[in-house]
Simulated scan of single mutants.
Amino acid sequence: MKKLFSFLLFILVGNFSFAQDADGTSTSDLAKKLADPNATLGQMLFPIDYIQYGNALDESRQNAFVVSFQPSLPISISDGLNLYVRPLVPIYISQPVIGSNGFEQRTALGNISADVAIGKTWPSKWITLVGVFGGFPTASDEALRMNYTTLGPELMVAKLTNFGAVGLIVSHAWGIGGSDADPSTVSVIQDNFWIASGGSTTASVTAGQYFYTINLKNAWQINASPTYSYNHLAEEGNRLTLPLGIGAQKVLKLGSLPVRIGAQYWYYVDAPDNFGPRHQIRFTIAPVVPLPW
């Protein structure tokens, strides 16, 4: 893992030529286009997360390492109107769970989620997106698997500015079906949803993401996109998960391939008292690819 972090840091601070794309678009111009959350650009997004968990009762800490894959290949319906179908596939390299013998680290395929949405850019440079979000109990390890499917609406409001972009995503998910959870297991955070239920077969979670991008010179940007959640059915002190985030990213050329690479730090100002994230480092690798349509 240290070698991976060192490689990513080298890429972030290395000297890369600001080459031109075949259509004459510089990496700086491409970075500005990618700041637009409704841009018609294909990306293969790989978030790599290191998460430190803890609780409010003692100083014990548990760490997780998760690699995810989220392709984004928008379909243009008309000028400024796009259709998105975006699955998110997490892979737990190391994820803490607790059972009868205390904490254990597990490696497994995670719970896959996806959204289907339509985004619209208005003449005022406001952007709206409306869709449906779902999460599915696909984890290959039972201790990490949701015990229900989640489904609900999704809304995004964003604004393109003279410095970049800023926006907010809000979704609400209800649990559908499911069976009683093993009471010996403790909930884990997956995509910032408090997912295991300690015997409950329902869920009601408001979650989402706030984001901002500030364009700098030479294809550099200051940015962050922390995710938050509020579990309406959790006990007091275990409902809100809210981080503050800061980071930087850059678009560069690896051969002829444009790639967006960045790093963010999230500090959780509020998290479940029983067990929740306290600090998070996210590395992002996102090759920019031609759309197949």
Rank of each mutant, 00 (worst) to 15 (best):
K33T: 00
G42V: 14
T201C: 07
P243R: 04
V205C: 07
H279M: 11
T25E: 13
T128L: 03
N223C: 15
L155N: 09
T185P: 01
Q249R: 14
G131A: 05
F16S: 02
G99T: 11
I127C: 04
P47R: 04
L160W: 01
V251I: 07
P90Q: 12
R260V: 12
F7P: 12
F136K: 05
N101C: 03
P96I: 03
P290I: 11
P226E: 02
D115S: 09
W293Q: 00
Q190A: 11
Q95C: 03
I127S: 00
T185E: 12
I51Q: 10
S124D: 10
S113T: 09
W126C: 09
A203H: 05
I189K: 08
P277W: 08
L151C: 05
I189Y: 09
D270K: 11
N218Q: 05
K3N: 06
N218D: 07
L155I: 10
Y92C: 00
P123G: 02
N192R: 14
P292I: 15
I281S: 03
L151N: 02
K3Y: 13
V132E: 01
S6H: 06
E104D: 11
P183T: 01
K120H: 02
T128V: 06
P153W: 00
L8G: 07
L160H: 01
G152Y: 02
K125S: 07
F275H: 02
I77R: 02
F5L: 08
Q190R: 05
P292F: 06
Q280A: 12
S113V: 13
V157R: 01
S60H: 10
N231A: 15
Q280F: 12
N15G: 14
G245Q: 04
S225F: 08
L254K: 10
I189M: 13
P37V: 15
Y265V: 14
S6Q: 12
I261Y: 06
S187F: 14
G134A: 09
S6R: 13
